[in-house]
C-alpha cells in the first residue's frame, strides 16, 4: 500500500516535471517559429508558482471552489490508471484495477466536474466554452474509440498493460501492426491535446478564454498544473497503446516527446476551426479511414 502511494506521488511528480519541461519547450519552439527568442525553459513553472502565490482568488460559492479540485482529482485518478512502464513494478498506479474503457471515461470526469464550477460562476463565455468542449468531444471520441477498439479486438484484451506487453518488437508496435488505427487516433490525439485547429474551447478571441474566464489565483494555478499533467497522461497513453510502451523513464520520455513534437508542429501551423467544422472534419476523414480499416479486418478474417 505504501509502495503504491509512493508510486502515485512519483507519477504525479514525473508528469508535472515532464509536462513543465515539454511545455517550456513548446513555448520556446513556438517562439522560434515566430522568429523570436522566447521565454526561459522554466517559465511555465514560474507562472504556475506565481499563480499559487497570488494573495486572493475570486469565488462564487462552494461549487466553484470544488471545480478545480474535481478537475485535478480527475486528472490524477486517470493518471493512476495508466501504466507508465512495462516489465516494471514502478509507476503502475492502480492500472491493474482498470482498463482502457474505464480510462476513457475517467478522462471525462474532471472536465465535467470543472464544467459545474464554470456553470455556477455564471460567466456566459465559460458555459459557451464548455458547450463547445462537449460538442467537440463527439468528434474526438468517436474516431478515437474506433481506433482503440481496433486495437482491443485485435489483441483480444481491453487492458492497457496487456496491449502494451503484446508489442515486444518494433514491427509489433501497434503503429506498425495497425497503421490505420494509429493514423485515426492521431487526429483524435491532436484534438484531445487541444491543439489548433481543434482548440475551440478556450479561444480567447471568440469566447474570452472560455471555461477559464472566471478562474484566477490559486484556482488557475491548479488548472494550469493539471493541464500539463493531463497532456502527459494522454501522451503516455498513446505511447503505451501505439508506440510499444517503455521499459524505463528515459525511453518513455523519448517516445512521448516524439508525439509531443508532432502535436506542437500541427498546433503551430493551423488556424482554428469552428466547433461544427471540427466535429464534421473528425467525422469525415478519420472516421472513413477507421471504417475502412474495420471492413478490411472483417473481409480478411
Amino acid at each position: 500500500m505504501l509502495f503504491t502511494i509512493f508510486n502515485s506521488l512519483l507519477a504525479v511528480l514525473l508528469t508535472y516535471s515532464m509536462g513543465m519541461l515539454y511545455y517550456g519547450f513548446y513555448r520556446i519552439g513556438n517562439a522560434r517559429i515566430h522568429r523570436r527568442v522566447g521565454p526561459p525553459l522554466w517559465q511555465n513553472v514560474i507562472d504556475n508558482i506565481k499563480l499559487f502565490a497570488k494573495r486572493e482568488a475570486p469565488g462564487h460559492g462552494i461549487m466553484f471552489h470544488l471545480g478545480p479540485v474535481i478537475m485535478t482529482a480527475g486528472t490524477i485518478t486517470s493518471m493512476l490508471f495508466v501504466p507508465f512502464l512495462k516489465d516494471s513494478a514502478w509507476l503502475q498506479g492502480f492500472s491493474s484495477y482498470g482498463n482502457l474503457i474505464l480510462l476513457i471515461y475517467l478522462m471525462v470526469v474532471g472536465p465535467l466536474g470543472n464544467a459545474l464550477a464554470v456553470g455556477v460562476s455564471g460567466v456566459p463565455f465559460g458555459v459557451m466554452g464548455v458547450t463547445r468542449g462537449l460538442t467537440r468531444l463527439i468528434g474526438l471520441e468517436v474516431p478515437f474509440f474506433l481506433s482503440v477498439a481496433l486495437l482491443m479486438s485485435g489483441s483480444g484484451t481491453i487492458s492497457i498493460s496487456e496491449i502494451m506487453m503484446a508489442q515486444d518488437s518494433f514491427s509489433n508496435w501497434n503503429m506498425m501492426a495497425h497503421p490505420a488505427a494509429f493514423i485515426v487516433s492521431l487526429f483524435s490525439f491532436v484534438g484531445m491535446m487541444g491543439a489548433s485547429p481543434f482548440d475551440v474551447v478556450g479561444a480567447p478571441v471568440e469566447v474570452y478564454s472560455g471555461p477559464q474566464a472566471e478562474f484566477g489565483g490559486k484556482y488557475l494555478g491548479f488548472l494550469a498544473a493539471q493541464r500539463v499533467m493531463f497532456s502527459m497522461v494522454k501522451l503516455i497513453l498513446w505511447v503505451d497503446l501505439f508506440l510499444g510502451g517503455a521499459t524505463n523513464v528515459f525511453i518513455l520520455m523519448a517516445k512521448s516527446f516524439a508525439l509531443f513534437f508532432f502535436y506542437f508542429i500541427v498546433g503551430a501551423a493551423f488556424p482554428r476551426f469552428k466547433t461544427e467544422q471540427a466535429v464534421d472534419f473528425m467525422l469525415k476523414l478519420p472516421l472513413i479511414i477507421g471504417i475502412g480499416a474495420v471492413l478490411v479486418r472483417f473481409w480478411s478474417l
Partner: peptide, 8 residues
C-alpha cells in the same frame, strides 16, 4: 491571422 487563432 490573430482573429483565427493563428499566432504565427
Amino acid at each position: 491571422g490573430g482573429s483565427l487563432g493563428h499566432y504565427i
